[in-house]
Structure formats: C-alpha cells, structure tokens
Nucleic acid binder design. Structure first.
Lengths: 246, 246
DNA sequence: CGAGTTTTTGAATGGTCTCAACTGGAGTGG
DNA sequence: CCACTCCAGTTGAGACCATTCAAAAACTCG
C-alpha cells in the first residue's frame, strides 16, 4: 500500500459510492448519505496485478480499505519458507488492521484486485465519530473470526480430500450468492487460486492438491474444463465429501 | 448458560467492579465509573465445574460475559465425533457471540471457571449506547482474530513436535505475564488441559500428544513433575522447537 | 516454435494415526 | 490396610495417508 494511484475525475464519478458494487456489504454498508459524502472525499482507488503485494507483514500500512473487485490472500510465512494462508478476502471484505500500525500478515492480490482505500489516520478519525462504521466493522470482524475458526476445523481435523471439497464448497457458496440464489448442480466455477495458493490455504502440498482434485474428478463429483475452471455435478455429494452435513 | 446463580449481597459486595481482578483487561476496561455502576447492577456471577458445559453450539444463549477465573474452551464437533478446539479463553476474555442469537461453537469449562455474566439483551442495549464498551469489544475481537489466524499456522503447517512446543509457549507467555515480567528459564507450568483437550486443540491424537511430550522431556527441554505439571528448562530452546523465531 | 512456468503423475519415504496393551494414581468398599 | 475398579496417560507395533523427490506433461507467453 505504498503509493496510491488516483483516478481521473471522470473515472471517479463512475465510482460514486451510491453506484458502488459493494455498497451493501462493505464497511460503509450502514453509512447514511452524509457519511458517504465524507468517505467519498477521502477515498481513492488502486488496482493491483495478480501476485502483487498489497501489504507486507510487520510493515506499516498507510492505507486500509475495501476489496471492490478480485481476491486478496492473507498469509504468514515461516522462517524456513512454509506458508499458511490465514484468510481469503472477496469483494466487500475489509483489508487492513485497525488499531495497529503494522500489518500482522502478508496481503497479496490473487488476481486483478481493485481496492477502495482510505488513509489510515483519516479513516480511524472518522471511525471514532461514526457509530455506523464502528457497528459494521465489529460485525464484519466477528464474521471473520467465525470464518477463521471454521477454517481451523478444516486445517486441524479434515483429510486432504475433505479439505479440497471444503474449499470448493466455499467457492460454490460464493458463486451461488453471486448468481443470486441456491447452489445448483452443474454450476461452473473459476478457481481464483493457483495450486500452490490452494496448498497454502489448505495446509497441504501442491502435489496433494493436484491428486485430490484428480480424485474428485475420477469419482465423478466434478469435471475439469482446464486447470482453473471446473463444473460441480452434485453439490450434495461435494458437501458430503467435505465432511460437514449442515 | 441456562440458570444463573445469584450470589448473596455480601459476596456481591466482595466483587465490586473496582476490585475486580480482570478490571483492566475485560470488556469493561475502558468504562468509566458511571458505566461501571450500570454494569454492576446487571451483572451476576456463576461458577462452572471442570467439564461443565457453558454453551452448546446452535443453541440460544441468554447470557454473555467475561471469564473472571479459569479457562474456557471453544470447540466444534464434527458429525463423526472428530473435535477441533477453536479457542481457549483465559481470565479477561469475552464469552459469547454478540449480534447472533445462537452460539457458533461449544463452550466448556476446562477447570473451575467463574464468569461475570450479563443478560444478552441488556448488554447489547448498553453496548448500543456506550462507545467505550464498543471500542474495547472491537479491540478484543480483533485480537482474537489475530490469535485464531496465528493458530491456523500451527494447525496447517507445523509438525506434531512444533505443535506441542507452540502450545507450551502460549502457557509460558501467559505465566510470564501473570508473574509480571519476562519468561525465565526454570519456569513451572500447570497444564490446564487433559491430553485429550490438548489433542483437540492441536489437531492431533492423544497418543501423539503423549509421545511428543515424552520426546521434549527426553530431549531435556522440559521435566515432568506429574502429568499436569512441568518445568521449562530453556524458553529459547522451546521457542526454537516451536518453529517460530520472533 | 522454444523457454519457462504450472500442473500432473509416479515411486518411495516417513510422520501421524489406529488399535491394543500396559502403567500409575485416585477413589471405593470390604 | 489391601484388593478392586476406574480413568488418564503412556508405550508399542503396524498401517496408512500425505509428503518428498523426480520426471513428464500441459500450458503461457515472448
């Protein structure tokens, strides 16, 4: 989050908060028109290329903000090179740690990412005065905590096959929400992550990820169009394979 | 959290908020004297025996509150009996999910636990009016999120030996804070968890937990007084064994 | 087309789990 | 006081699942 590229006024007008695609889910979801105006003044957009670093663990971050488009990974790197992903942020999710000057993990753009950024200082000042922002931020943080704990079950107790199925189920749920409804069989899914990123997310090696995708394919649960696109034939069977029955 | 045992007025007086042992770290840490009075009126204490259920996943919780004394485990149970602990709460930590009617995981008293409880409705009403409570709660939730993510690295990427050492390091840090300073070699530590609970926390089996404790003992890092008490000979060596170097 | 990267596949190793038996301490009752 | 049970923890042997190392295949991009 070093330099912030400011868009032209024309482009900026296109991105009025009222027209924002994540208006209803981002930190600003509960903000009224007056607050939106304040946010509109201090916000700026920046686009990151796939693999580009958004924030590095331990370093100061001058900006925080929302994912408008794309996927952001949060991960931690061990001294010997082992990496564990600890979060995957989608449009609407909040990037950056409030109340701490430095980033607690590495944030990297998985695909092309657009962020709606606020200068940390200014945002925290606004936060101090806005119950709506605070309420939404608390809500989002609690949801993220639940998601993190849900994932701890996957990492600690599930088999490689269950891990893969669990990951695919996350994508299925997201795709279902995006297409506005129920998760239907025959759904086509784009994998935003490389095999390596999936391995880092699931606590596996790339080889095991590859093998388990192959196994799910051989068992008829999915079909691969190419390495990054697949079709889910039975959502029920995939959920079953994921090991949870809720 | 079904029925709440109200203490006698005499006992209650002993537990005035101003004298509370977790006054400086709990949700009420930033609350001024007026707010403390409000909290004092609606709070109640309850003690749980080791192994006693505090809240069950999926069920409504009428009360939420702070751990005053003891250790609380948060865990999730899979359909086939596999269990993963997703949090370990110590004095000062907050128990219960705000903004949701039902508990997202099982909460169990590990040892004898005393909670300072508030009726959920009343507390949330107070929360809506108190910036101090909200600020502290957000801060605590963010810290818990960081801790959960830290633990994801342990679950996803560490070996059994590293997992054990990581767990012991958590206890060492806590003990160091309690005795008010640096983590010194020769520190004596009480294990609040059974082998089974440790296994559920670490994503291992009890046998592996037992074997790894044995290995750390054989390697001279620790000495066992009995199954639940040990002495750490070299904190540096233990940290090394945990696989992190910060 | 050719170089580099990502993904898949194969074979062997090894760490953790499973199943089973044993140990030791706490509590109980004759 | 001793025999007994019960439970938590330990120890052992073998199986299995995921990893490691190695190589081939598929894809991307100049």
């Amino acid at each position: 989050m070093s330099t912030v590229v400011r868009l032209s006024e024309a482009r900026k007008a296109d991105l009025r908060c009222a027209l924002c695609p994540i208006r209803d889910r981002a930190v600003c979801a509960y903000s009224g028109p007056e607050e939106l105006k304040l946010l509109e003044v201090i916000k700026s957009y920046r686009t990151y290329q796939p693999g580009e670093e958004i924030a590095a663990m331990g370093e100061e971050t001058a900006h925080i903000g929302s994912v408008v488009q794309g996927t952001v990974s949060l991960s931690r790197l061990m001294a010997d090179g082992r990496r564990q992903m600890v979060g995957l942020l989608f449009p609407g999710d909040f990037v950056g740690r409030i109340m701490l000057p430095t980033a607690p993990y590495d944030a990297v753009a998985v695909d092309e990412v657009t962020l709606c950024l606020f200068e940390r200082r200014r945002f925290e000042r606004l936060l101090a005065e806005s119950p709506d922002l605070r309420r939404r931020l608390l809500e989002m943080t609690l949801d993220e905590l639940d998601a993190a704990r849900e994932w701890m079950v996957v990492l600690g107790r599930k088999t490689a096959r269950e891990k893969l199925a669990s990951f695919l189920m996350i994508l299925v749920r997201r795709a279902a929400i995006a297409t506005g409804g129920e998760a239907r069989d025959g759904l086509r899914i784009a994998l935003p992550l490389t095999r390596e990123a999936m391995a880092d997310y699931l606590g596996l090696t790339i080889e095991t990820v590859s093998r388990q995708i192959g196994a799910l394919r051989r068992d008829g649960l999915i079909t691969l169009e190419d390495a990054r696109h697949l079709v889910v034939h039975s959502v029920a069977a995939l959920r079953e394979a994921a090991g949870d029955d809720a």
